[in-house]
Design a protein around this nucleic acid. Structure first.
Length: 299
RNA sequence: GCCGCGGUAGCUCAGUGGUAGAGCACUUCUCUGAAAAAGAAGGGGUCGUCGGUUCAAUUCCGACCCGCGGCA
């Protein structure tokens, strides 16, 4: 760490693919180094989504406080920006107690938004506007954007409608061009990345899925539906929620459900790794011991 | 045994007398308030086998092999 990190607040970031053992490591390190955990998971923020999202249980927390779990209703959409606000607040709280924040989770975009200090424009989603723009094709959206904000148009993926719509939304609502991403992080992070072979991971996912089914994963999804979360919404969540929802609607068999979840989890793990593959800041580790050595010298 | 239908990419299947496509999968990549999201690029096929017709066959004809259904 150079001078740059000197005045910044030290935080530890634990990342890695799904089923790699992040949550457990976070608890162990917190116990050892007087820390508290800030989750970085786009599904675990929702209330009632426990088994399918792999949310840590009270018992597994071993008394270590966890933040950013159960902070939203699954009926409403949570966002990266909201995540950033809440997690910053949580970190401040932890630091005030003279404890170490351990940011732990699999949602790379959330981690980046928080740790790398990306400034997300203060424009809330306008679903009506999005719906309207959704009807146009990418080319015409791109042309529209180019006219009102040529600078943003220059770097944007011109075939990605979702991004184009968001950019137009920001401009129309704020009456200003899309601001640049300023990276000005108040943190000095230590990145710990859990590395695990594809084969081993696949086995772990399989074992974990069996356990989840035993613990009542399907029942959990059924309960969510009964509490008013639509099947469409459940399918949007992906993986266990998507396929259990399809199974409950009798669109697929139980066997198919299990196969799809397994497959998609493996794909998801690969995608998760892609975010960090070329990030030189990450210390790739395999054991808790390695993590402890790194954290000790960091603090 | 007979009749019918089928055998084309890892899978499900389009298609054509001038040696082939789609979706999914796979590999690589991007990431400015949905991120388990969204998007991009790429690799891959002796078109069941052997013959025949033709300038040319994956496509037409014949035989055979394999699968599915029906009849006996």
């Amino acid at each position: 760490m150079g001078i740059k990190g000197k005045n910044k607040q030290k935080i530890v970031v634990i990342l890695g693919p799904t089923a790699s053992g992040k949550s457990d490591l976070a608890v162990q390190l917190s116990l050892r180094f007087n820390g508290e955990v800030v989750s970085a998971d786009s599904r675990q923020v929702y209330k009632g989504m426990n088994i399918g999202s792999g949310k840590i249980t009270k018992k597994e927390m071993k008394g270590v406080p966890h933040y950013l779990l159960d902070v939203a209703s699954p009926k409403r959409k949570f966002t990266a920006s909201r995540y950033k606000q809440l997690s910053e607040k949580a970190i401040n709280k932890i630091l005030k107690k003279k404890k170490i924040p351990f940011v732990c989770g699999g949602s790379a975009f959330y981690i980046k938004a928080l740790v790398d200090g990306i400034i997300l424009p203060e424009v809330p989603p306008d679903w009506n506007l999005r719906k309207k723009l959704e009807k146009e094709d990418a080319e015409s959206l791109y042309k529209k954007l180019k006219k009102i904000d040529p600078k943003r148009a220059k770097n944007i993926d011109r075939q990605n409608k979702r991004r184009l719509i968001r950019a137009i939304e920001i401009i129309e609502k704020s009456k200003k061009p899309v601001p640049g991403i300023k990276k000005n992080s108040p943190y000095n992070p230590l990145f710990l990345g859990l590395k695990i072979s594809q084969k081993e991971l696949s086995k772990k996912i399989e074992k974990r899925l069996k356990k989840r089914l035993q613990r009542g994963m399907v029942k959990e999804v059924k309960k969510l539906r009964e509490s008013g979360v639509s099947f469409k919404r459940l399918e949007e969540f992906g993986m266990e929620y998507e396929w259990a929802a399809k199974y409950l609607q009798k669109k697929i068999s139980k066997k198919e459900m299990v196969e799809r979840i397994q497959k998609e989890s493996e794909q998801f793990a690969k995608k998760q790794m892609a975010w960090w593959k070329n990030d030189k800041r990450i210390n790739w580790i395999k054991t808790q011991k390695q993590a402890e050595v790194l954290v000790k010298s960091f603090l």
